[in-house]
Design a binder for these strands. Structure first.
Lengths: 151, 151
DNA sequence: CTCCTTGCAAAATATTTGCAAGTAG
DNA sequence: CTACTTGCAAATATTTTGCAAGGAG
């Protein structure tokens, strides 16, 4: 959980390919999507290895796990501060540039919380694909999908 | 998916108790946590019914599903605009009052997105329980938990 | 009466983990 | 050599769904 528990340091082929492929993408893939991609280069890699490395890379600050990605984790190797929009219909995520300044946290005090560490702005939107589909079917807008998960 | 698909209108005992109990809480419970609570009043209710009603209540705008709740959905019956802090260590969520104004979305344009619908500010923090535990164990700070899920 | 809703159980999806074998440093 | 890592498979955890019976309006 803390830095004391990070004995992992070895640069294996798997770890390096996972990081390399994630860096090529701006699609914020899920663990499984990344697994499918990495598999093209390392056919014998297992999904468990991808998960373990995503945990390690996240904890060591080399990649980010996206909050608000719905119920499936998504990852981003772009460590520059920036925001994300998520399509409320299909769950697709895109980067927003230029970045907006994160709201300050100094004046915020919450009962039960020792401290507020950081803030984050997130956006909901409708991607072009879903917007087109909504027009086509004659719906004014797709407000929310019928499950608790994302698509 | 759209408003055309909401034939549900009946106020059953299950639905009413679920909403009533959620409104009593400011703990942003998961489906299972709420299930355990509702079960005290309706011992024969099933978890599936709780899930189905949470979907219905969310879609009909009577409750909110929290974004950034980690990998397990959490719900809030407080429909006033407000923000949340989440403990990065244990996943506990608390309300922030008074609310901060949501950043505007008008000037934001993202390739691939037809429109940006709304923005949301979220905060990461350390709850008192986890802060105390971190002091106790001598760690300067608990940076991130070791799994991709929340606790 | 009608058809929305429920309970139950099974299925689907997502993530974690034990263990023996492999390998980086 | 040592102990971190991996592949594999099984275990967890969370959410969804098919179906026959129940109940709201």
């Amino acid at each position: 959980m803390s830095d004391l528990h990070h004995p992992q340091t070895r640069m294996t082929q798997q770890r390096s390919v996972i990081l390399e492929e994630l860096r090529k993408l701006n699609t914020h893939p899920t663990a499984d999507e990344l697994y499918q991609i990495v598999r093209l280069r390392l056919p014998r890699i297992s999904l468990g290895t991808v998960y373990r490395n995503l945990v390690f890379l996240t904890e060591s600050g080399q990649i980010m796990r996206l909050e608000s990605a719905g119920n499936t984790n998504r990852f981003d190797a772009n460590m520059q501060p920036h925001q994300h929009v998520r399509c409320i219909c299909c769950g697709a995520i895109a980067d927003i540039f230029p970045p907006v300044l994160a709201p300050e946290t100094d004046n915020i005090h919450v009962p039960g919380f020792a401290r507020i560490l950081q803030s984050r702005i997130e956006y909901d939107g409708l991607c072009e694909k879903c917007a087109a589909q909504a027009d086509e079917t004659g719906h004014k807008a797709v407000l929310y999908h019928g499950s608790l998960s994302d698509n």
